[in-house]
Design a protein around this nucleic acid. Structure first.
Lengths: 341, 341
DNA sequence: CTGGAGGGCGACAACGTTGTCATGATGGCC
DNA sequence: GGCCATCATGACAACGTTGTCGCCCTCCAG
């Protein structure tokens, strides 16, 4: 009880510079000078002020400081689908890291693939005057960001491009990734390759599907839409998709992202007719499964770093034309994709 | 180029209420009223103000608003070891979720198990006037938080208790967890059970070790310190620990957390003499490995939720004595822990 | 002894917003 | 027609901080 309540009664209040000033018998400005290590303060006075600061547990209000100084708030906003998804938590960590080297903190928020939520969070972060915004978009309309962009808040899109504004974007080579996966499976003799993708209105899902199609064409396979299932990435939907593709005689599967891969693997676990499988996105323990899972791999850390670096370049005055960075992917053969039909 | 720069030359500046007021031909205060949906504004004036707001892309500065209103900033700070660790990213998501229902956003920061960084981040968050702080402590001294706590910022510790202050804490039943694991393995006939734990100065590692010891005693096994390896949770250290324990004729292993379990599994992958294994912390795909991995499971989501709810209760005026919540764990047998020596 | 330089410090305004109070206009009622 | 209530609006101060400017005192050169 005494542990939590302050010495006197009533609601606790944070000490301000005037409290410190009063206690130390100096002016507010002098306290400010001490706090900011400005030189023009005598050692004796500074000592008294510091003692008062310690005694009161004073901590400067950086919000007020930012307001007065007209400087930025030292935060950047990160809006993504779900921090709990390892893909995004890796990205978050990378962003946090880069932001840290520039003395910035990160405000995070999960949109849950909801465009309205994405918008709400992005705008709220702007109202908080973040120095910049990194967005994994859920929606496809981003005109709402124009006022922000125009008034100088840099915005970078990651993993998916923005809808109707042109700003810096960092993507991975979705097209090339699934294309490579198809080629790889075809090279092992597969003619009926199934594709389980996320909802087709998600950019990466659509791109990966496109890569799948193009891969089929290049490999001389006829594109058969019965071998494609696009839809939500929850376990039941994916399990259902997998059964259907197998009943269509698919001998190999390409799974469109890490969530889908995991659910597909679980759906396949019991079955005797296990198809070859290549997953998009690498994931922990893929190498320890039986068989080890071949994947189209890319660095989520690199994604986050690239995005954050782009953002900080803009914050530091880079005003070149918007850039689009496409990070390479790499097919990692581990076993599951190297079995014949 | 035109995409990024504002209509005129010079640095872009965010519109303020006075800009809006000037454009709409009203006073600042009227703009404020419109922005805050206060009733005493005529429809015609409100329309003019809203038009000006849209035209300028004005977004209110919530920092200034908080300062003036004397209200809180609507953010809470979360300091943990590493967001990229699935354990913590699940926790982060849960905290975000609860915070969202109370209209709060979350500032995150990874301490990387560095006490100085933990302290720095926690204090910085306080300087930003977060409404509350959730900490997975890296250090063992938390006196530095006393001024904050005293001035009314609630603090909740998760996963590990604070060092030298008494505040709300949410833990899991570390002791019971490893005890159960030992009992379980002993019931399957194991007499030489090894324990690979994290650095012993980490609270959870020490508790789990204690549970291991007590479990050994209860199971009638003599505690043999050669069967215990405590240390960092990186892959080489864990791999090394595993080899040593096996050379000590351990027939079963208990791995002290999700990182250690994963590294241990990788170290064991090639070997013929695979011991029985029970891991602390559940992890994705544990059920799909061969054999499926038995674990001491607990809900990271529940941890985050409990912590956040405790925090918000404090923020809403709960001033009862500090609480300590210990969440239950559950042994999930999947195969790896149910093999005989 | 005087003048100027400079060090130490404080008063004041301002950052963008909102609470309080005042003001002028309008309308209804006796 | 006069009076008060009500409505719409604005002026002003204040939140906690910092930039600007000016004051006073000391010290040293002339």
């Amino acid at each position: 009880m005494t542990t939590l309540s302050p010495s006197s009664s009533g609601k606790p209040r944070r000490a301000t510079m005037s409290d410190v000033a009063r206690l130390a018998g100096v002016s507010i400005k002098t306290v400010s000078r001490v706090v900011n290590d400005e030189p023009a303060v005598s050692g004796e006075t500074a000592g008294r002020v510091r003692a008062a600061i310690d005694q009161l547990g004073f901590r400067p209000n950086v919000g007020a400081s930012h307001l007065r100084r007209g400087t930025t708030t030292g935060t950047i906003g990160l809006v993504l689908e779900d921090v709990a998804n390892p893909f995004y938590s890796g990205l978050t960590r990378a962003v946090e890291e880069v932001a840290g080297t520039f003395g910035r903190r990160v405000l995070t928020s999960s949109s849950d693939e909801d465009a309205a939520r994405e918008r709400e969070m992005a705008l709220e972060f702007c109202a908080r005057r973040v120095d910049g915004l990194i967005i994994v978009p859920a929606g496809t309309e981003h005109g709402y960001l124009m006022p922000e962009i125009r008034s100088g808040t840099p915005v970078v899109f990651v993993d998916r491009p923005p809808g109707d504004v042109v700003v810096d974007t960092v993507l991975v080579d979705n097209l090339g990734g699934t294309k490579a996966a198809v080629t790889h499976l075809a090279a092992h003799g597969h003619r009926r390759i199934g594709f389980v993708g996320d909802a087709p209105d998600i950019f990466t899902a659509a791109e990966r599907l496109r890569g799948y199609r193009e891969g089929c064409v290049e490999a001389g396979l006829t594109y058969d839409e019965r071998l494609v299932k696009m839809g939500p990435h929850d376990a039941p939907s994916v399990g259902d998709a997998v059964s259907r593709l197998l009943s269509e005689q698919a001998t190999a599967l390409i799974t469109g992202n890490n969530r889908i891969t995991v659910h597909a693997l679980r759906a396949l676990a019991g079955r005797a007719d296990r198809p070859a499988l290549v997953g998009f996105d690498d994931f922990e323990l893929a190498d320890l499964l039986v068989p080890p899972v071949s994947v189209v791999s890319h660095e989520t850390t690199a994604l986050g770093q690239a995005a954050a670096k782009l953002l900080f370049a803009r914050m530091h005055g880079d005003d070149g034309p918007p850039r689009r960075i496409v990070l390479p992917v790499r097919l990692v053969p581990r076993g599951s994709g190297e079995v014949t039909p």
